[in-house]
Design a protein around this nucleic acid. Structure first.
Lengths: 122, 122
DNA sequence: TACCATAGTGATAATTTTATCCCTGTTGAT
DNA sequence: ATCAACAGGGATAAAATTATCACTATGGTA
């Protein structure tokens, strides 16, 4: 994280939610943790397109924002487990609603997204 | 928009939702349009921290993704109005839930976000 | 007459985010 | 004896996003 030069916008609740969820993999991480994938290596396997480096970083932000907690087991080889805090748990129904909306409109959304992909600046 | 070099992840509904909402001002734009602020200049005044350039661009993406529509009135000076499509309208309850969650946990979230701000890498 | 509002876009710079690569240290399997 | 798996972090490169500035055109206002 560099020193931020552009201040955040934290005016309303929507801004706050946006801030803690803004990150390429964060919602997915929360969801998979909720589904029971707790160890970093498990999460990495669930999200193979993300580099391990970034997953660690985003888990760190989620932790700083108190949406997840971390338990380190002092064993060898290392074993770490992440879990949802109460705050994180309270977000699950909202994330579920996001996913449900996406599922309901999957075809239309996929079409629109891909059409835009193939038409950058004609 | 540059040519995208890293492919998008569009596996599940959550990914699709994430894709169309990912953008610094998009959720706010949808919400303000829903509240009745339809003209770009009105939206700009509601979101003064965003440059006009980016608002136009993100409105364009929302339009490509069929969440909003645009009506241009052929008058001088120009007059343009944006409105939610049925698809966009169907997203409002979900955005509302996001905002409500943020409102409910405002203090805790604000504290955590600001604490992290002031502790980049000690 | 000089200026502002209006909607939008091109070109380019700044900023932020993400990706890639390397390194730590120990255990068990090949 | 070599290597994979495990969790994490530093340093740096690449990519993507956002910001800044200039410009189009017309009519109303000070």
């Amino acid at each position: 994280m560099h020193e931020r030069k552009i201040p955040l916008n934290l005016n309303c609740g929507l801004d706050l939610t946006g801030e803690v969820l803004y990150g390429k993999w964060k919602i997915r991480l929360l969801w998979f943790i909720h589904e029971g994938y707790r160890r970093p290596s498990e999460l990495q396997r669930k999200i193979p397109n993300a580099s391990r480096r970034v997953l660690t970083a985003q888990l760190g932000e989620l932790r700083d924002h108190e949406l997840v907690g971390r338990k380190v087991h002092p064993v060898v080889p290392p074993k770490t487990e992440y879990f949802l805090t109460d705050l994180g748990q309270s977000l699950i129904p909202v994330i579920s609603a996001l996913g449900q909306w996406g599922d309901e409109h999957e075809e239309k959304l996929r079409t629109a997204i891909l059409k835009r992909q193939n038409t950058p600046k004609p």
